[in-house]
Structure formats: C-alpha cells, structure tokens
Simulated scan of single mutants.
Amino acid sequence: MLIADRPGAVRPREEFDLVRLDAFIKAIDPTLEGEPKSYQFSGGASNLTYLVSYPNRDFILRRPPFGRKAKSAHDVLREAALLQAIRPVFPYVPTIVASSDDETVIGGPFVVMERLIGFIPRHDLPEGMSLSPDQAHTLCRNMTDRLIELHAIDPQAVGLGGLGKGQGYVRRQIEGWSGRFRDARTPDTADFEAVMAWLVASEPAERATRLIHNDYKMDNIVFSTSDPSSIVGVLDWEMATLGDPLMDLGSSLAYWVQADDDGEIQAIRRQPSHLPGMMSRDEIVDYYCRKTGLTLDRFDFYLIFGTFRLAVIAQQIYARYCAGHAANPDFAGFGHAVNILERRCLSLIDRAGF
C-alpha cells in the first residue's frame, strides 16, 4: 500500500545514535533483519518524529525536542502510556512497541511505535491526490466524529481518571498559556496583553470534564490512501488530558483556515481546510453540538482561546529556533505568524462584541 507521508533526511543537530537504538530494538524484536536507516518527518514542531526503517519492518520513533522545552508538553512516556490505555476503546492510535527513559540510548526519553500506513495532509494534499467536494465534506464529518468519539470515552473506565486536575480547567488553561507566552516572548513579537486580559474577563463556565486530545488537526491525522476521507489513525497525543471538550474543539478550529478567510490568515494556513466542500468552522460547531446534544449560544471564547493558544505554541517554537535549539528552517517565519495571530485574536474579540 502507498505510504504518502514520506520523511526526508535527518536534520543537522537532530541526529541520534542509530547503532545504540538498533541494539535496543533488536533486543525487543529479534526477527529484524539487517541494519536500520533513519529519516525525519517534516513535522516535528513539537516532539521530533523519525522513521527507523529495517528491510523487513518500519518503526516510528518519537523523542522530545532538543534544548529548553515545556516538560509537560513533550512527555513522550506519558503519551505512550495514554495510547496503550485508550487503544482498546479508540482504535485510531498506533500500537506502542517500546518506550524508554534511558537517555544513554539516544540522548533523551523516547517511544517506538508501529507505523500507520496512509497520508498526512500538510499545507496541501500530497502531489497527485485530490478530493471531490463530497469527499472533502465527508472528511470533515469523519474528523468531527472521531473527536466526538474521543470525548465520549469514560476516563475512569480506561484507567485515566487521574490524568487531569479536575474542575478549574478553563482558568488553568488561560493562566498557563499566558505564562508560557510571557516566558517565550521575543522582542520582535506582539505582547498579547489585551487578548490575555479579555480571556480572563470572558471565561465561561465549564461544560464537562472529558478526555481531550488538545492538538487535533489534519497534520496529526493519518488518512487512508484508498479512501482519502477515511481516518486510519490520530497521532501526537503528548498534550492530551482531561478537560472541557469545547476547549478541545476551539483549539482544533484555530487551525481551520477556510476559503473565505482574509489573505493574511490564508498566508499562514498549514492544512488544506480551504478546499471546495470543506465544512466551515460554524458548520463544524453546529454538527458537533447536534451529535453530542450540547446547546451553545456562542463559540467565540473557545475559538479566541484556541487562536491565542496556537500563537503561544508558535512563539515557543520560534523562541527555541532563535536560541539555536530547533534546526527546522521553516521555524524562522513563526514570529511573523505570531503577530498575525494577535491581529486575528483582536479581530475575533471585536466581532464577538463582549
């Protein structure tokens, strides 16, 4: 079967000791043949993701980024434990092969997992692939349905009742992401103080406490190459926790650049959510509420928070790049994206009218 999401060469300063890793993996799977080769996926804005390829089997390797980082956002061992817990009730996750906190192997904690076969949309669909408007619409419904299924999981039933901190999630998120932004801000980026003040003043009551992904977007999803609207798996669970599911939906839709958004937002689009047939943000919210039975007067807060949170993530990555701890040259433009996202937040606040 075609694997459309192809990695490239490992970036300088993000290499690891392949000989040590080979010995580690072969101790787990002695059927492996030959010597492995390593490649790196073009994502990796958060945890770094590699392909470790043997002649008879492929693995995915995940490890935290190099340099200063937010520990809770890059805990690959926590991520592995969560995937093992939810796989019996949410089969859209890869099987964990091994995990280790032995930093003598590759210089940091890491997880080895199966490679899911399919494609991951980045800025655009893979070359040679297209979606009809009906397929694009079905893709949106499938994405939303998988999120609804995740939010329906009983955390206690899968042994994850202690994953979160209970009530107060929304306030903790506002305070936590505000602190992270202030810690990571660089002199060439906006200060977001007006946005942060608005979030504090506009905090809604929490709707529920559910298992949430916290980074649910197209380039964290593997789609089938035989049916591009069908989902094979959901990746990148390092920020998953227990919290308000509407915050999860808002954070997801912050990435959703639709066809009628202005040119400045179109310029920072990172997934093909603009294609003909794709549902709008409002349509996705309406669909989510109908399927879950939620009643919701306004979604403004959740989208504005999600947009601010996206800006913080971009700022943290940009700060690591400026400090020389991230090698991906794409990160050089993240500071400009942060400034665009502040203008986006302020525009959404003005439009919300409260």
Rank of each mutant, 00 (worst) to 15 (best):
F305K: 00
L211D: 02
I86K: 05
K291C: 14
Q315D: 04
R57E: 05
V89W: 00
K69T: 12
I317S: 03
P88N: 09
D262I: 07
E149S: 12
A352M: 10
L163H: 12
S100V: 08
R207F: 10
Y318V: 05
I212C: 15
I265T: 10
A27G: 13
Y54T: 01
L199E: 02
C345F: 07
I28F: 01
T209G: 13
R68P: 01
P133G: 03
Q258S: 14
V89P: 05
E206F: 10
V158L: 08
S273K: 02
A332E: 15
P155T: 04
A85G: 03
R269Q: 10
S252V: 02
L131M: 13
D5M: 00
D282E: 15
G233Q: 07
V93Q: 07
D286N: 11
I304R: 03
V112I: 15
T209C: 10
I313G: 08
G168Q: 11
A45W: 03
K291P: 06
A240P: 04
N214A: 15
R344Y: 14
V234K: 12
R68D: 04
D22Y: 03
A81R: 13
Y287T: 02
K71L: 15
H123R: 14
L160I: 03
Y288T: 00
N339K: 04
G168A: 13
P7I: 01
K291R: 15
R309L: 09
P64I: 11
M1T: 14
K165I: 03
A184T: 11
L150A: 02
V19R: 08
R11G: 02
K37G: 07
S273G: 05
P64V: 11
V158R: 08
V89T: 07
S226L: 12
